[in-house]
């Protein structure tokens, strides 16, 4: 005899939900599927049908997406780890002006940091031609063809400056990232 817990539509929904939640850790996934089953059985106890209970939850893919979004954002905020924060920001950039603005500022900060690291690496390999140069008609940071035409202003500080830019980008990612993700509107 088939019990409500073995109902084919419930089993199919559980399978689709599990599949749609595949990006989440297994324990999290198992918990969500078990709770969905428990909810459907509670609905049956209250006099509904499996079909009605599943329809009220919505398509398995949509239901899974709301967990996935919540999990991505809350994990990023609670862990405060750089990859999670950046990933959560990029996934939600279209959902909030605060996230879009934060992502833009963070992108610019990391771009500046990347350029400064590149120049610091060049400085280590070619100290005579790389630096912050000032001449009669020019001032720039980068590589000069003829060092005798200008004066190098940074000396050995370029790697230290690159480190400062990295720290600024890292700090902005944490502060702005968490700030923006906390202001995300809920989807469901």
């Amino acid at each position: 005899m088939t019990t409500p817990a073995d109902h084919p539509k419930l089993a199919e929904y559980a399978r689709k939900l599990r599949w749609a939640l595949s990006a989440l850790p297994e324990a999290e996934r198992d918990g969500i599927v078990a709770e969905m089953r428990s909810h459907v059985l509670d609905r049956l106890d209250a006099g509904g049908t499996v079909e009605q209970a599943l329809a009220a939850l919505g398509p398995a893919e949509d239901y899974a997406r709301s967990f996935h979004d919540a999990y991505t954002v809350t994990t990023a905020i609670s862990s405060r780890r750089l990859p999670q924060l950046i990933s959560a920001l990029l996934h939600n950039v279209a959902r909030s002006a605060a996230v879009a603005a934060a992502a833009l500022v963070i992108f610019i900060a990391w771009a500046i940091a990347a350029v400064s690291v590149y120049l610091a690496a060049l400085k280590l390999s070619d100290p005579a031609h790389v630096g912050l140069w000032r001449g009669e008609n020019f001032e720039f940071i980068g590589i000069i063809d003829d060092p005798s035409t200008g004066q190098e202003l940074l000396g050995p500080w370029l790697p230290a400056i690159a480190l400062v830019f990295i720290l600024i980008a890292w700090g902005l990612t944490h502060i702005l990232g968490v700030w923006a993700l906390r202001r995300l509107p809920r989807q469901r």
């Binding site: 939850l57 919540a70 469901r188």
Partner: peptide, 30 residues
């Protein structure tokens, strides 16, 4: 979950969908 949903919908008449309550609970738990 279902108890929370029923209280939200019957006492506060918030008209919350079944598929909304569990993601909310998980977010609050996280």
């Amino acid at each position: 979950g279902l108890e929370i949903l029923q209280r939200m919908n019957e006492e506060a008449e918030l008209d919350v969908a079944d598929g909304t309550i569990y993601p909310l609970l998980h977010r609050m738990e996280a």
